[in-house]
Simulated assay, not measured.
Amino acid sequence: MTRTISAPPAQPATVGFEQHALRGPFNAAFFRVMDPYIERKLRPHKRRAFADLPAEVVELGPGVGANLRHLPRGATLIAMEPNRHMHARLRAAADRAGVRLDLRERLAESTGLADHSVDTVISSLVLCTVQDPDAVLAEVRRILRPGGTYRFVEHVAAPDGTPTRRVQRLLRRPWAWTFEGCSCERDLEGALRAAGFATVDVERYRIRTPFLPFNTQIAGVAVTRSGVDNAAWFVRHR
């Protein structure tokens, strides 16, 4: 029997997210068409980060369901997806994967889940798009139980002075407009390490694609503190 974490909100908590008539459908179609290619490029890193996922997982920004293949059949995915244009494809993909979908139209900064109520949160190619990555990571820590894990696969800023970083800066505005606020210039590893997790294991790597701003990436697992560790950390940082 699947445990229910909390009831869905009465109204969508998506203040600040624009249901754009062009970008929304474009991104839903783009990521559906590009899914096999992106998965092929990221598969080894996703397999490590998403290994042995439990039967109930929260995903931030699942889009059209690229990560459903990494969940065990029969699992429950609690999906925080504010873009309504993704929803039909996500539902269809969950049906094909044999995954029970609990779809909620909410932002990653405000999941609406109870404190310390989940064991695992995952995301891929999402922290680059959110308005406030620090707020998202604080929300992840809030909803994870002590010892819970946040599994991530994200693209990040290339090192300063490199050709890739120059391309990221050159394409900053059109890239962000096209991909719903996506930034190629965020130090997400730094944000993860500063977010108060007990441990953060990060793999840095580069993929080879024509989408140059997307090619510098990280993947890994962040683990929340135990109750005792949390108390000591808050004393030091209050």
Rank of each mutant, 00 (worst) to 15 (best):
V15W: 12
N27D: 08
L107I: 05
F31T: 10
D119E: 13
G181S: 10
R47G: 04
L171A: 15
G181N: 11
D187M: 06
P72R: 08
K46N: 13
A231L: 09
Q168I: 04
Q11I: 14
A29M: 09
N67A: 08
L60P: 00
V140E: 01
Q19D: 12
V167T: 10
P8N: 12
G24M: 03
V221F: 02
D115F: 01
M34I: 06
E59F: 05
L71T: 00
F30C: 07
R151C: 05
A157P: 04
A195K: 11
E139R: 10
H20F: 04
V140D: 02
T149L: 13
L42V: 14
F179K: 13
T4S: 07
N83D: 14
P44G: 10
E59T: 04
R145I: 08
R106H: 14
L103I: 13
A21K: 12
R69W: 00
V200W: 04
P8M: 11
P9E: 15
P9S: 15
P146L: 05
C182V: 10
R145W: 05
R145G: 07
T224K: 08
I5W: 08
L170P: 08
L107C: 06
D229A: 15
W177V: 15
A75C: 12
I38H: 09
P44S: 07
R208K: 14
T162M: 03
